[in-house]
Design a protein around this nucleic acid. Sequence first.
DNA 1: GATAGGGTCTATAGTCACTATAGGTTCAAG
DNA 2: CTTGAACCTATAGTGACTATAGACCCTATC
Lengths: 145, 145
Amino acid sequence: MLSIGALSRQTGTKVPTIRYYEKIGLLPEPGRSTGGQRRYGSAEADRLAFIRHARQLGFPLDDIRELLDLSDHPDRPCEEVDAIARRQLDLIGQRLERLVALQGELQRMVTSCQGGATSDCRVLEVLRSHANCLCETPGDRAPDA
Amino acid sequence: MLSIGALSRQTGTKVPTIRYYEKIGLLPEPGRSTGGQRRYGSAEADRLAFIRHARQLGFPLDDIRELLDLSDHPDRPCEEVDAIARRQLDLIGQRLERLVALQGELQRMVTSCQGGATSDCRVLEVLRSHANCLCETPGDRAPDA
DNA sequence: GATAGGGTCTATAGTCACTATAGGTTCAAG
DNA sequence: CTTGAACCTATAGTGACTATAGACCCTATC
């Protein structure tokens, strides 16, 4: 039986994160010691490891919830799992494309800066003028990983 | 003089976002109509365009605040600007590296899935076992863009 | 001048995935 | 039996917005 701190060290997950996962229902409520402290077995440790690994791969918690659910039902077909993974792969592809473009523009900005006063700064100039920038995807956001 | 909606359309920024930028001090408090509605001139429009462009390049708002400040002082040397841009470039490089690794692992997962029941699902199996995964950077996060 | 509608106002809460804090309790070693 | 680290709960904060509610304004048409 592991304390929350031991589980934290074992899985590389911070203690508040474990409690957070419990609160949002990703981890089951564990047993408690007589004094009321959480005690974990290997099933919980496996589940948490699964979650952390999926998080490292950038899956959002809602997807992970679904993956865990599917994982709990070995008889169900794995198409849904596949779909979730492919969706995530797609997303990462999109982010990569975008990041490469950003890197390009930033690189151009930085290398064209010759020093001097900010009044002549090429970086600021580029930021000021929208000429020759990407600006394809105006208001998008992309989280994590 | 532009209404907030007109400025929104001109810069591709949502109206609540403009008000949010004002609240956190990135945009100055604009003049108002007799009825109390915000009215913007071209200086504000330029400033907002600068902010949006920097955001598209992934700069966090705090960096943008500093860039705007430097931009307001044309006599100062542009080294700081350069440093901020280089830092951002670095960050993007790191994110790219990581995303490429993620893409690789996800791709392997997805292509090795042969269909069938979730009990044999290769995707879930990989998520369950930490063997041959990246796991170098345990608890890191990386926002935006 | 009245009215209709769309735009605008403020304030507040929600998003995602945590992280930090405060103030108290329990556990294990010595 | 005492110490001090680890644990408990509850709440608030992060970043960069987004959404909602309920009231008010502005302009155009009648």
